[in-house]
Amino acid sequence: MVFSLFSKKNRIINLVINDHSIRFLELKQEDPPTPQRWLERFLPPGIIRDGKIVDIDSLSSILEECIDEWKIKRRSIRFIVPDPLVIIRKVTIPADVQEDEIKGYLYLELGSSIHLPFEEPVFDYYSLPDNDKTRDLLLFAAPEQNVMEYVNLLSKLKMNPVSADISPLSLYRLYHKVDRAGGDEVLFTVQFDLTSVNLCIFDETIPLVMRHFGLPFDINQWEITRNSLGLMVGKYTGEPEELVLQFEDIFKEINKLMDFYRYSNNTEKPDITKFLLNGDHPLLMAIYDEMKERYEIPVDLLTIDKEAKSKHPSIPTNLLLPLGLALKEVQ
């Protein structure tokens, strides 16, 4: 999926910005997926909140430092639209709307028969199998104002934004590329990050539903350092019970979304067949172990170590999202 704001360019840098970090990755080769170089920078709380830029001056200064340090000025950029901004919604349109008329039809119906929680969205769609009377689409939308804040800021800093994606599709692209996907699969992806969790259910290759949840984050209860690879390492110094309560809330949301999927789809659809876990949370392995204990459904931790050749370094899990983004539209 591409939000239709951009033209295509070559030599593309892949950028992921969320509430707590900026990550950059440059692809060396597509098969096997191998990064040429990567770096990241921790973002202090309050600069971005729920995907929206709150302190644009501070973000601009930090991004400018990163661009100079990483030597990526004037490069073309793909970026992830922050998860809290994105909505995936199934919509139904008349079957006689022609393919080249769909986008115009959606523009006309937004705000009238198609309601979103924001005005002036930037959007894309995916056509689902239709019948004779109606046609179903998956609508991917985000508030244009917030997306354009990122685009304009990057452009102001001498970067060239050319493409945007959403995190579940980027992760699924990598998952499929390394031959982990199975036939007739209903995949439940869990992106568990330091300050948020994003849940998405795929029916084969189609992301049917997505939910995003923020996690309470107190910087005073974390020690953030860098490891030998220059990547962030977080150590929790607060009361363990607080994290347990956070995780319990997320497991409840996972259960709710599983129930929603079961009851909103017809009985011929299979149930969830696999969890796919990824993210940058420092306790990701503990979360993985807990999910394996709680659920009878298999839990797959997204890695590409088995596919990577021994001469290539292991790729940290917090870089798999920009790596999946890098596989988008590879020429």
Rank of each mutant, 00 (worst) to 15 (best):
V2E: 15
V2L: 15
S7Q: 12
S7V: 02
V16A: 02
V16P: 00
S21L: 06
F24M: 14
L25N: 12
E26L: 00
L27N: 05
E30L: 07
P32I: 08
T34I: 13
W38Y: 15
L43R: 06
P44C: 05
P44F: 03
I48V: 14
D50T: 03
V54A: 12
D57G: 02
S58N: 10
L59W: 09
R75L: 14
I80D: 01
I80N: 05
P82W: 10
P84Q: 02
L85R: 04
L85Y: 06
V86F: 08
I87S: 03
I88F: 12
K90E: 13
D96Q: 14
V97C: 13
K103Y: 13
L108Q: 04
L110Y: 07
E119K: 10
E120G: 14
V122L: 02
Y126K: 15
L128Q: 03
P129C: 03
D132S: 13
K133F: 09
A142K: 10
N146V: 05
V147H: 06
M148Y: 11
E149W: 04
Y150Q: 07
N152R: 05
L153R: 14
S163H: 03
A164R: 01
I166E: 00
S170W: 00
V178P: 11
D179T: 14
G182M: 03
G182F: 15
G182D: 02
T189F: 04
F192D: 02
S196V: 01
V197P: 12
V197K: 07
N198T: 13
L199D: 01
E204V: 10
T205Q: 10
T205A: 11
V209R: 08
G214V: 07
F217G: 01
D218W: 00
I219G: 00
I219Y: 05
N220A: 03
N220M: 08
T225E: 14
L229W: 07
L229I: 08
G230E: 09
G234M: 15
G234P: 14
G234V: 06
Y236M: 06
E239V: 04
E241T: 03
E242P: 04
E242F: 02
V244D: 13
E248A: 13
I250P: 02
K252M: 15
E253H: 12
E253K: 10
I254C: 00
I254W: 00
D259P: 01
F260Q: 09
S264T: 07
T267Q: 09
E268G: 12
I272R: 04
I272H: 03
T273E: 06
T273Y: 04
F275S: 00
L276I: 00
L277Y: 11
G279M: 11
P282K: 05
L283E: 03
L284V: 10
L284P: 13
L284T: 02
I287K: 05
Y288K: 11
Y288M: 02
R294G: 08
D300M: 12
D300I: 08
E307V: 14
K309H: 08
H312P: 00
N318R: 15
L321H: 01
L321T: 01
G324L: 06
G324D: 11
L325Y: 09
L327H: 07
K328W: 08
